[in-house]
Nucleic acid binder design. Structure first.
Lengths: 370, 370
DNA sequence: CCTAGTTTGTCCGCTCCCCAAACAAATCGC
DNA sequence: GCGATTTGTTTGGGGAGCGGACAAACTAGG
């Protein structure tokens, strides 16, 4: 029983068509090279219907008849193998404080183009950063066109709060952005649909689709950088919350009388397990410079077995575990994925996280880490 | 952009029909008495299509042509008013430690039958409690049949962990139930589909549909009884979690070094704001007897202005607020509804909750309480 | 009272799309 | 080479929504 309200909008024949086109395309995407007859048998559609759907998908460059025949050749006419086309591609973009990364991927997930330009984006006014982004994407699009690819959209990952509907970056403190209509600006520069989303959210989806959380429908992806963010997948869908600011994992309070946090609360996990906090506990003075180097430094010293660093990391893991236990109990999650700077630090964090989690979460549940 | 995976199952014409029948029925349910033409204009369907859909809904006793004409009589042929039928009814059941309540409601939400039998269910073996439940529902069904009503299903609310798919009560400590297949047992006794669900979850849905949280798509309903449970509505849908145990709000840890909780963790809100904990702090000895009376006692003394009780309640409100702030930050919620024993105590709790929440949640958000 | 104007509800033809079944094509085993 | 088998396409049928035409019911105004 779902207690669902159902759709608010009326359906017609085109709704059916769209749904079934999606069924066929997704089936090929997940099951791999298939013949029409196989698709029909496996999805429950008729061979005739599948035939019609497939020819439409081929016409739209989404599917491809490879010319091969389906693999285990047995008795009867061999099937014509269909695969995801590599013509339609998407452009992905990561905007960060000190670099800008662009990639172009086709439907199979193969990367067809990748560039990264290191440059500090903090000093530039937002408009010129957007210009640079536009040029970078334009280069990627030109390269794609030269290869005969057909780009259909651009997705931008930013570290900040994003308003979903308009693609506006409401606040990205590290970049110094506030209320910047990134999607609209880029769309006007590029003439392609642009989606803007928080990097932790996208990272959670990536883990769900192709990473450590494949097949896990309820999990949280904790993303450590300067602060601690998070992406939450619930019921297999990215959860955003009322304002699209869901997953602010860093501001679960684990110590009500603890240090004041920038958010106004006290004892948020962020104040205890943020990169700089760990470094401070470990006795590493927060050297001015690239934040990335701080993680590297921690990893290096942990590998050397520096006791203070190991203790600080174990401690951080335990605090993380306490916050995660609350999230697990509240949301009945199945796993947590450690991302961002927690990724490289995971070997030293995860024992503490795991132990605390098992101790404090309602049922002993299998957690997966990465 | 939704990043949704889409449906896994193929669609056909009947899918469209079902969807549109739902659109029309829900439209009448939410917008009230309407003519066919109004429905068409407001949903975007054609008058012809609506006509066809309506006649099917009437044939199925879901809609009713009242004979009235639509209200603001203007120029032109008046429309024939359609309303939700009162023939199709659902049976609702609340199973608690010391009573059993049955009600029958039609589609408009009008209660057509209500009985409550006080009897302690703790001493009886589960099978005989199920027998009693079966008889109570049977009585309700007979009464409904005598009124010409057509019951289509039964929903059972229990205070315990319920496995959604099978309708099995995995654990209901207060009743002494464990792994009891309530839905299956009742279905075989009654011959009607039976849905079993956690009472806090149903309570959250009730608030969402007709209570304090109408129009609010992301909120939590905190349900205080002996323990502290919760129902979470996210994106307008009840959230259950991987195992259906979502919303265990009581086990958010707010004081990692605090009192040990039955769940294995420490400092769970439940240990701080549970009914008995409040009573203890307030200096009321936990009198043996009905738990209900404990809340009454607290209310009485609070009304008298007993300082210790007022302080204890304010304290509890603040602890609740701390836990809620974590949930708000994690899930970007819009509101909290206080239910169960927190309902009557709300006047003395909510100031503390509100103040703490405003202080500690990321953005100052308007919370609604009840 | 009668007629024009307006809105409602139904009906009919059209199209879209899925399904079922028949048919053509391609391959294997004997 | 021929039957058996499987694949892919074609054709006819039915469900369902859409658009337009039309009858029904009512108001307004002469």
């Amino acid at each position: 029983m779902t207690f669902d309200r159902g759709a608010a909008y009326p359906a017609d024949q085109t709704t059916v068509r769209r749904a079934n086109l999606g069924v066929v395309l997704r089936h090929v995407a997940s099951a791999g090279s298939r013949s029409r007859a196989q698709i029909a048998a496996e999805t429950g559609l008729t061979r005739g219907t599948v035939s019609s759907l497939v020819s439409e998908l081929i016409a739209r460059d989404l599917l491809l008849e490879t010319g091969e025949t389906t693999s285990p050749r047995g008795i009867g006419r061999p099937g014509a193998a269909l695969e995801l086309s590599d013509v339609v591609v998407g452009v992905g973009l990561e905007v960060n404080v000190d670099y800008l990364a662009v990639s172009v991927e086709d439907l199979t997930g193969t990367v067809r183009y990748r560039r990264r330009s290191n440059r500090d984006n903090r000093d530039s006014p937002p408009q010129s950063v957007l210009d640079r982004i536009g040029e970078a994407v334009r280069d990627a699009l030109d390269a794609a066109a030269a290869d005969g690819l057909r780009p259909v959209g651009v997705t931008v990952a930013v570290a900040g709060l994003v308003e979903e509907a308009s693609g506006t970056v409401v606040l990205a403190p590290n970049m110094g952005w506030a209320d910047l209509p990134v999607a609209a600006e880029l769309e006007s520069r590029l003439g392609l649909p642009v989606v803007v989303e928080n990097e932790a959210n996208l990272s959670a989806l990536a883990e769900h689709w192709t990473g450590a959380a494949v097949g896990i429908d309820d999990f949280v992806c904790v993303f450590g950088e300067v602060g601690v963010g998070g992406g939450i997948v619930l019921g297999g869908r990215l959860f955003r919350g009322t304002h699209g600011f869901g997953g602010e994992f860093g501001h679960i309070s684990v110590d009500p009388e603890g240090r004041a946090c920038a958010c106004g609360s006290r004892g948020c996990v962020e104040t205890l397990v943020g990169q700089e906090s760990i470094a401070r506990t470990a006795g590493i003075s927060p050297v001015a410079g690239r934040p990335r180097s701080l993680t590297d430094e921690l990893v290096r010293r942990a590998q050397d077995g520096a006791p203070a660093v190991l203790a600080a990391l174990d401690d951080a893991g335990r605090w993380l575990g306490i916050a995660l236990a609350s999230a697990f109990n509240l949301l009945d999650l199945r796993a947590v994925v450690l991302g961002g700077c927690f990724g490289p630090l995971a070997p030293w964090l995860s024992d503490g996280v795991r132990a605390t989690l098992e101790e404090r979460s309602l049922a002993a549940r299998s957690g997966s880490f990465s």
